[in-house]
Design a binder for these strands. Structure first.
Lengths: 230, 230
DNA sequence: ATGAAAGGTGTACGGCGTACACCGAAGGCT
DNA sequence: AGCCTTCGGTGTACGCCGTACACCTTTCAT
């Protein structure tokens, strides 16, 4: 009975528990503030304990990506390629928007994790079965780029902290020095006149660009485009 | 004459010298290996000396971006909007490809530096004078995203080190586990069967996607598109 | 001559990732 | 039962990072 004294036997760490804890911690404090030490503390454990479950921080990040990618819904069958691809990409987007760090982490990895590779494979498959040549599919995948994973590559990342109200307000460089930027920012006219990426309906912009591309793809497919005269 | 003894009076640091040194150092050793300490050493100076010229590392990175952006050629006048935009974007691309770290750094900044803002302003201006409404220009800029700066957002960054031959060779996950990826990689068939982004003609892919978008923009412009039923 | 500013120095702090040696408990063997 | 391996958590320590702060030197306007 003596062992009941030190009672609250911690549920033991697993790779999975580590990864999930890392995901919620990154959601909370931002990816750049996520450290092995803080993660360990969150799990009530000494930093080095984590290394029994992940090889190093790189692998931790890879694992976190896989957790998020695992949230993407499986593809639907039957629809035409454009609807199917659109739907799947928007689902990926839904999975990623909840974890604002994910896009940045995915980009920074030097290669796809298995889960990402599987997702890519399924998207490629949609084009192929939709009547795209291998050649065209290849270029089309490039053109999609990170949009395939559901995130637009905005020019500048959103501020990383979990604190969106601490906006330093755009420098407002001497009023009229950038007339076109001003005009555009003025027309967007939301909560504040910031430049591209704030005060915009991100979902709309995403779908706008996505559909522009998908329509372009369809046009090329119909006319039997190939990278002939390359 | 005594001061000639300790002779080789270092040419004094300036903000400009610091930034330029940082750029070439980053070119050499990669952005993630660039530290204030190494940069100081490169300049034959103690680390803290740098802080007399840049406020902190963030500002150093901002400054480095401006150096690179400064290499973009000014716009040409006279051509139709599509040619002009295309040309300017490809020029931006040329300026950025020589500094493989630049894209990543630009993305990671939370807001545009003045030089970047000026560049964006000029691009926006090209659309406006080309007959695009403010509304359409806005969405079009979003759709371009980072492509406006000349870099495609590939799904995964190239390996950051200055050492492209140390490629760990793609994991080759159990041969046929990702059939479509395999098919596509096989068809690309360059030096090695890696996935998307290696062994591809990046310039071709960039122009392919760029032209797809620009053509789409022109179509929308001609039909007087507006985000009406939003 | 003097005093202030500008710019380079030295020391130090707290945080990071992680190598390495250690140690207690669990479970399979004989 | 006794033993031994293996697994997972611990503690210490190293080398790197960004940078605060006090200091000193050189320069130059007055």
């Amino acid at each position: 009975m003596a062992e009941q004294a030190k009672a609250v036997r911690r549920t033991p760490l697993t790779r999975d528990r580590v990864l999930r804890a890392a995901v919620v911690l990154a959601d909370d404090i931002g990816i750049e503030a996520l450290s092995m030490r803080k993660l360990a503390q969150e799990l009530g454990v000494v930093p080095m304990a984590l290394y029994k479950h992940v090889a190093n921080k790189e692998q931790l990040l890879d694992g976190m990506v896989d957790v998020v990618v695992g949230e993407i819904e499986p593809p639907v069958a039957g629809a035409d390629w454009q609807k199917a691809v659109r739907r799947r990409i928007l689902s990926a987007r839904r999975a990623l928007v909840g974890h604002s760090w994910a896009a940045q982490v995915i980009r920074s990895r030097s290669g796809p994790t298995p889960a990402v590779l599987a997702y890519m494979d399924s998207v490629i498959g949609m084009f192929r079965t939709g009547g795209f040549s291998v050649d065209l599919t290849h270029h089309v995948m490039h053109a999609l780029g990170s949009r395939m994973m559901g995130f637009t590559q905005e020019l500048f990342d959103a501020p990383p902290g979990p604190d969106p109200r601490t906006r330093p307000a755009p420098p407002q460089e001497d009023a009229g020095q950038y007339p076109y930027v001003r005009e555009l920012a003025g027309a967007v006219a939301h909560d504040e006149g910031s430049v591209l990426g704030q005060g915009c309906d991100d979902q709309f912009e995403f779908e706008f660009a996505l559909d522009l591309l998908l329509d372009g793809f369809e046009r090329l497919r119909r006319q039997g485009w190939s990278s002939a005269g390359r």
